[in-house]
């Protein structure tokens, strides 16, 4: 399975950070929050240990709500099946930024610096998100060159895809638990980790795969992961 060790990249999308901190795009931060963002961004490079694991697998069939992958893995989700509808391959992945940030957040909370912990937690979430986005974009470009198209990515626990299905994803990826492990209740450790899947389709199906976005019809307007 390809394992990518990434060099720490601390580019933070300030608009996305503002949203996670309870604000909006082009938000003015208070002096204290601005200072915290600067301080944590500087400290972050010493805390990050980013890794991404992925595996490409053949899609055997996609029916209404059922996605059968090669090797007998079946995922159940109406929305995921729409995303994967015309895909012949799937890429399963898990990304993490490592444990150090978890430890630092816990330390801050123990010292009753809840505000600091909240800002660092938000920055950590954005960084792991950006790792996955970068990976997805690279895969998209790579497949585009070969005339293929990749779908939007999807993670267990979002929309109608049960978080319990994450167990199948981890079983399939057979990860070394030193890097990322999954608890019985489907909590990933390190906490700043993301697992998911996206599909790859061939030229005759590109229009649908590229265009389909389940977020467009979703009522959960306050979702942090909304892609509209």
């Amino acid at each position: 399975m390809p394992l990518i060790s990434l060099s720490p990249n601390i580019d933070i999308n300030i608009d996305k950070l503002a949203t996670r901190l309870g604000g909006k795009k082009q938000q003015d931060f208070s002096y204290a929050v601005s200072e915290k963002i600067t301080m944590f961004t500087e400290k972050m490079s010493r805390m990050l240990s980013p890794h991404l694991y992925y595996q490409t697998i053949k899609v055997d069939s996609v029916n209404n709500g059922e996605i059968e992958l090669s090797g007998g893995i079946t995922f159940f989700s109406i929305k995921l099946s729409k995303v994967m509808k015309e895909c012949s391959e799937a890429v399963c992945f898990v990304a993490t930024i490592g444990k150090d940030i978890d430890r630092e957040i816990i330390r801050m909370m123990e010292q009753k610096h809840l505000s600091d912990a909240f800002v660092l937690d938000a920055i950590g979430s954005l960084l792991v998100e950006s790792i996955v986005n970068d990976f997805w974009k690279k895969m998209k470009i790579k497949h585009q060159k070969a005339g293929r198209v990749v779908s939007l990515r999807f993670s267990p626990g979002y929309c109608d895809w049960s978080i319990e299905e994450q167990k199948k994803l981890f079983q399939f990826l057979d990860l070394n638990p030193v890097f990322v492990k999954l608890s019985h209740s489907c909590l990933m450790s390190p906490r700043k980790s993301i697992s998911g899947i996206f599909g790859i389709s061939y030229p005759h199906t590109t229009h649908f795969v590229e265009a389909y976005n389940p977020c467009k019809n979703c009522h959960k307007k306050d979702c942090n992961e909304r892609r509209v």
């Binding site: 901190l21 309870g22 208070s30 929050v33 009753k112 809840l114 505000s115 909240f118």
Partner: peptide, 16 residues
Amino acid sequence: FETGEYLIPDMLASAD
């Protein structure tokens, strides 16, 4: 906080 002048970490610093 309700009017959006304070973000969550601002409110938390006060709560701290």
